[in-house]
């Protein structure tokens, strides 16, 4: 294991009841880089990303074997899942702000961890929203419902909400697939800035997006990782024929 690996995944298999959704997955995810998972629908990218903060635990009938380690700790070993999820934040495909004010959305995570002081929470809210490039747009409506924001703003609010926990990793499961191109561009710009402070893993259906924003790319097909390398190698010099076929648009 090299030190700049955030996640180390070895021989990971995942079953939904009898369906084998991940097959012998081996992957290293580097710290402070953007890693993109690409591949056609149903190939296991979302399943793998949900292994990284153990969100698959919520689905009944899931069985996992193999190793997923963060900073050399097996996350399926004897660990506290809640602490894991505070370290590994997640942004979902569909923006899902809670039906409460913008302020309360950001304050939610810290409050759940027991932060009570109003001044502390005020500071967290402002800092998180600034980092998510949303502060100027919402600073005058912090106490209004987050559901009144546009889709793109809602998604940046969800990113801010994840940032408020000061995680080490942010997982993004197709974060722009429900957004228009302008909102998408803003999120991509945000990801570019965030990678200085966080390790980012992003699932995307858009190969252009993977090419634009990621440092490393893993290509999935039918539950297997066909190829993983630096994004430039994957896109300009793929080793596997299937990878080449996919990125040149011959299928998927």
């Amino acid at each position: 294991m090299v030190d700049n690996n955030k996640f180390y995944i070895k021989d990971l298999n995942l079953y939904y009841d009898t369906l084998r959704a991940l097959k012998d997955v081996n992957l290293q995810i580097k710290s402070n880089k953007v890693t993109a998972f690409i591949g056609p629908s149903g190939c296991g990218k979302s399943t793998l990303i949900r292994c990284l903060n153990r969100m698959n635990d919520l689905i009944e009938g899931v069985k996992i074997n193999g190793l997923v380690a963060i900073d050399n700790t097996d996350i399926y070993g004897d660990i506290d899942v809640i602490t894991l999820r505070t370290k590994v934040g997640m942004v979902f495909q569909k923006p899902n702000p809670f039906p409460m004010s913008c302020y309360d959305n950001i304050a939610y995570g810290p409050r759940c961890q027991g932060v009570k002081s109003k001044t502390d929470i005020d500071a967290i809210v402002e800092k998180s929203l600034k980092q998510a490039a949303l502060w100027d747009e919402v600073k005058d409506r912090l106490n209004k419902s987050a559901l009144g924001l546009s889709g793109g703003q809602q998604q940046r609010l969800c990113i801010a909400r994840a940032i408020a926990m000061e995680p080490e990793v942010i997982l993004m499961d197709e974060p722009t697939s429900a957004l228009d191109p302008i909102a998408t561009a803003k999120i991509e710009e945000l990801i570019e800035n965030l990678k200085k402070s966080y390790t980012i893993v992003i699932v995307t259906h858009s190969m252009q997006q993977a090419a634009r924003i990621s440092d490393n790319t893993a290509f999935f097909l039918s539950g297997e990782i066909i190829e993983s390398d630096t994004t430039s190698n994957i896109f300009t010099n793929p080793i596997n024929k299937k990878t080449e076929d996919y990125i040149t648009g011959r299928f998927g």
């Binding site: 903060n53 969100m55 919520l58 809640i82 602490t83 894991l84 999820r85 505070t86 934040g89 997640m90 979902f92 569909k94 899902n96 702000p97 809670f98 039906p99 939610y108 995570g109 409050r111 759940c112 961890q113 969800c158 909400r161 994840a162 926990m165």
Partner: peptide, 20 residues
């Protein structure tokens, strides 16, 4: 998605129930 969002932020099941 509210449930997932809350749990992904490290809230416990009970916190998720009462707060969201």
């Amino acid at each position: 998605c509210y449930r997932d969002g809350s749990l992904a932020l490290g809230a416990s099941k009970i916190q998720t129930v009462f707060k969201v």
